[in-house]
Design a binder for these strands. Structure first.
Lengths: 134, 134
DNA sequence: GGTTGACCTGGAGTGCGCTCCAAGGGCGAG
DNA sequence: CTCGCCCTTGGAGCGCACTCCAGGTCAACC
């Protein structure tokens, strides 16, 4: 099975431009295969890889680190420890970032609570007969 | 109590440049007070506000939306519903983003698990007498 | 044979969020 | 009086990650 760039764009939620950009920038394991007319033909293996790219990018890994990871995989056996180190380091960063976001979100939630209470109080004022339990 | 820009930078983990940038860009509620010599003097109220800015920015709200929120607060009473709407919309986005990151992170964790197992197996191979429980 | 449409390439452009810089003011220490 | 320091302003520059464009190739269809 092989796919055109438009099909892959559809399947991965990336744009054709982004797919070409990733390839140029060394994020793919190999240059993508070409048809007789020079059009890209993506394999299932390519899709699997792009999926991993998406996970790394989607968790905020910078392009340059993704490229570094791709280079390690490309280098083949013997780089497993380095790959693992890279992924683990990234994992630590993501967890830290998640914790930070959750903390900030907590503060925002408290703010939302304050505004909600304020507005509800105003509502009750305007409709004095309304039930307290709504 | 009032603070120099350097002190605020220290307290908020922002740079003086960023603080000036936020002010220029309309993210502050008011232009910051100045000393007789034209130096910025931040109040405790300013600090509280910057803290909120940090929560919004730290959860990924774009500058332009933070500015919009600042404008609403500046406009005073009557904008509470709009502020609440803005915060709630942001909250929804943050939760969606968090879920996405967590999903991607799960995939990465599985990858880490695979590499860990692989490398552990290799280790055992190299040190045949080692205990299985380490 | 002309047109359409998908794709190609190299390179320029964009939006975001800072970040840095040059030129200058004011003030205390030596 | 000079030096060093902290601050001012307006404006330029930067890194990131795309995103867009011009000009061209090829195959298929009318």
């Amino acid at each position: 099975m092989s796919y055109s760039i438009a099909e892959v764009a559809e399947l991965t939620d990336l744009t054709p431009d982004t797919l070409r950009y990733y390839e140029r920038d060394g994020l793919m394991l190999h240059p993508v295969d070409r048809s007789a007319t020079g059009h890209r033909r993506y394999t299932d293996g390519d899709l699997t890889w792009i999926n991993l790219l998406t996970c790394l990018r989607g968790t905020g890994m910078p392009i340059r680190d993704v490229r570094r990871y791709a280079e390690l995989v490309r280098s083949g056996e013997g780089t497993e420890q380095a790959r693992l180190d890279l992924l683990r380091a990234h994992r630590v960063q993501v967890l830290a970032r998640l914790a930070e976001v959750q903390e900030h979100l907590g503060a925002i939630d408290r703010k939302i609570g304050i505004y909600s209470a304020k507005l509800e109080a105003l509502d009750l004022e305007r409709t004095p007969g309304a039930s307290v339990d709504t």
